[in-house]
């Protein structure tokens, strides 16, 4: 592309505009501390203690649980879009490519270490997912850690010989199950509150029952979907598991498509 004087002038104008914009925005952020107030976040900190010990998880999955549903769907949409880029489900149809052989052999140390490391990563990821309501972590980071384990083995051993062999169908199923856990737990809250209280609330925490409106415990059985755990966080761990499955499946799916496309260029 040749750059004429005319275009040079434009580049300078664009540069000056961007400098002005970034100056204004950075200056605003610099002044921001004078105007900052606690607001809603103070309230969330105040009230979240009676749901689960980890305040961030409570904000993420209870007060703003529906936003988290949206964020999960950003991931799902992005994953499906990536698969469409590689032709899966596009209007022209998907041509299955042959899984490429590994061209570069990995070294002995890599082959020796990758599998134990991957097992460790998967176990660690499961811990992060399951402990989301009491310790830092949750579905997003946990799922990402598990997917890292998968990615490690795929990179080292290749798609054909990897010990963690997921098929495409399996990952899609996993992602579907994860998304449905989240969506249907919300629907359960809606149905339960409508049944016991008259008006429904989507994603109501039926396990904790923070506003005492479904009273299921009073009838002699335990609250719906109360996670069996001394802290009684209600539905939060289930949502974490759903998100975890989803993130794990989604990222692994992207890794798989990228590996399949490796030889194309």
């Amino acid at each position: 592309m040749k750059t004429s004087d005319y275009q040079q002038g434009r580049n300078i104008i664009a540069g000056v505009s961007l400098v002005i914009a970034s100056f204004v925005i950075l200056r605003t952020l610099f002044q921001f501390s004078d105007y900052l107030i606690p607001g809603m976040s103070y309230l969330y900190n105040l009230y979240s203690g009676n749901i689960a010990p980890n305040v961030i998880t409570v904000i993420l999955f209870d007060f703003r649980g529906y936003d988290t549903l949206g964020e999960t769907f950003i991931l799902i949409t992005a994953v499906i879009t990536t698969t469409i880029v590689f032709g899966w489900g596009s209007l022209k149809g998907y041509k299955k490519k042959e899984t490429p052989e590994m061209t570069e052999k990995s070294t002995v140390i890599q082959r020796l270490m990758a599998f134990p490391l991957a097992i460790f990563l998967v176990a660690f990821g499961v811990t992060i997912v399951l402990g989301g309501h009491i310790s830092p972590g949750g579905g997003f980071p946990g799922g990402a850690v598990i997917a890292t384990g998968y990615f490690l083995t795929v990179v080292i051993y290749g798609l054909k010989k990897t010990p963690l062999r997921f098929t495409h169908r399996y990952l899609v199923n996993l992602s579907t199950i994860g998304a449905l856990i989240f969506l249907l737990t919300g629907v359960l809250g809606l149905v339960a509150t409508t049944y016991y209280y008259g008006t429904g609330y989507y994603l109501y925490n039926t396990g904790v029952d923070p506003y005492d409106i479904i009273h299921v415990g009073a009838f002699g059985w335990d609250n719906l979907l109360d996670y069996p755990d001394p802290t009684h966080p209600g539905i939060l761990p289930y949502l974490n598991i759903g998100v975890g499955l989803n993130v794990l499946a989604g990222l692994s799916l992207i890794a798989m498509f990228l590996m399949e496309a490796r030889k194309d260029e």
Binding site: Q7, V16, S17, A21
Partner: peptide, 20 residues
């Protein structure tokens, strides 16, 4: 895409200048 980015940069600066 060059033209679009040019106008977007211009618009961003213009909006900030007008509002501030």
């Amino acid at each position: 895409i060059n033209l679009s980015s040019f106008y977007v940069a211009l618009t961003l600066a213009l909006l900030l200048i007008i509002f501030l």
